[in-house]
Design a protein around this nucleic acid. Structure first.
Lengths: 242, 242
DNA sequence: CCTAGTTAGTGTCATCTTGACCAGAACTAA
DNA sequence: TTAGTTCTGGTCAAGATGACACTAACTAGG
């Protein structure tokens, strides 16, 4: 009996939880570009047992919000992103059928081939963790709690509040090619961008500087590697994982 | 003895609270333009008794986050802004010296002469509520808890994430002149803007349309009144007060 | 070793946007 | 009637942007 009496439930003090929305770029056969994917975990308990949900859990008394989010993400999925950013605090009364829960949601973009991204091994072994296309209606339609709502908001934020430079720095590593940055933007905005013009605008920003290194190995002219400098974003908006 | 044992305190479950940062435009003699002011309440209890703090209080079990913020703001200051937007959730372990508190902070811009703004009467009578210049170092330096930090983050957000149209709509009423919108931007960005150019960019946005009315009464040519249409912002980012 | 294929990177041009500023329009106050 | 004020429409030059042509530099396959 997952549903308790509403009036009774509302007298409990609100519980605090943290969740994470992790976007990753993966090849998308349909468009030929990269697309956005995200990891979900299958719920093993009521409510919503068996359904997919965002990684998350209760806020421990000794964890900062960020630490709680990062630790929970690591424990449930094996993912260790470099940065987590606060997305929003969701606190509606009816978010959970059992009790009042206020969830503070963090989000990040990670690279599929990130060395930090030890998740691959965990994800492969654990049938209760898997990646899905972020906009797959089939997936979005069957999520636990209000997680569909949360993901859709995260996608909206991604597309509307993107800044050149900072977002790329978080997703890509120390050094990156301009084409890699462009891939990020093409995936987020879901449209092709002119390589030449993209290069021009990116090189005109002060936060990205070129290095002397090149990335060889492709079947074409080796592209120059760039580095991200500067901190346009507010400290609060891209906290470092401790 | 406001400080209890740290190790002991940290075992308590985190408490949930809401706070509000309300910016208002007031004439500033120094610059000749409008400046940003905000209301603070004097703490009547420990910790930080006697010091100024942001309006706020605990989250009741029956209130949504937004309602809790709006109700608390009304009760402590008399202010009833049309919109509140979620700013950030602050949850560091040492925010409060007594116990662990996670504060979800809402913010808004209000008009000094807003009819909704019944706060004037309350503020005049109550010596524990007052408006201050948002950037007065004297004030910022003596705030309770981490409220200085919160206000500085709100100011940063205001200056960096401003969009034409939406912000003006929230601050100004149904109908407004373009000069009023310009005043908002001049106060927020703290610099003078060219009236003609500002008019041009604003008129080119689809969300603002002209009306047939004019505002008479000034000692100059009556300016045309405009109306805000459209909803560029995500629903989550400008919730209506219920 | 040569050539085709692929992406990197440069340059150009027309168009759109932006900032600075001028000048007339339309009101109030005296 | 005139001075003072802001509103409002306009011009112009400089800067940013989008479309696209073209060269550079690598790999792969013959």
């Amino acid at each position: 009996m997952p549903f308790s009496n509403v009036a009774e439930r509302r007298e409990q003090p609100p519980a605090l939880a943290v969740s994470t929305v992790i976007f990753s770029l993966r090849d998308d056969e349909r468009t030929g570009r990269k697309g956005l994917w995200l990891p979900l975990v299958r719920r093993t308990r009521e409510p919503f047992r068996g359904q997919w949900a965002l990684p998350g859990g209760p806020l421990g008394p000794r964890d900062s919000l960020l630490d709680a989010a990062a630790n929970n993400l690591r424990d449930t999925t094996g993912l260790i992103p470099r940065y987590l950013e606060q997305l929003y605090a969701f606190g509606d009364l009816d978010r959970s059928p059992t009790r009042r829960v206020v969830s503070i949601v963090y989000w990040a973009l990670v690279r599929e081939d990130d060395p930090h991204d030890t998740a691959t091994s965990v994800l492969l072994d654990d049938p209760n963790v898997a990646w899905f296309r972020a906009e797959d209606p089939e997936v979005l339609g069957n999520l636990a709690f209000d997680h569909r709502h949360i993901i859709e908001y995260a996608l909206w934020r991604l597309r509307n509040k993107v800044e050149y430079g900072s977002i790329a720095h978080r997703l890509l590593g120390e050094r990156f090619t301009l084409a890699q940055v462009r891939e990020v933007y093409e995936a987020v905005l879901d449209k092709a961008l002119d390589p030449a013009n993209f290069r021009r605008t990116l090189r005109s920003t002060p936060d990205i500087e070129e290095t002397d290194e090149f990335l060889s190995g492709g079947k074409h002219r080796p592209p120059r590697l760039y580095r991200y400098t500067g901190s346009t974003t507010h400290p609060l908006e891209s906290e470092n994982i401790s």
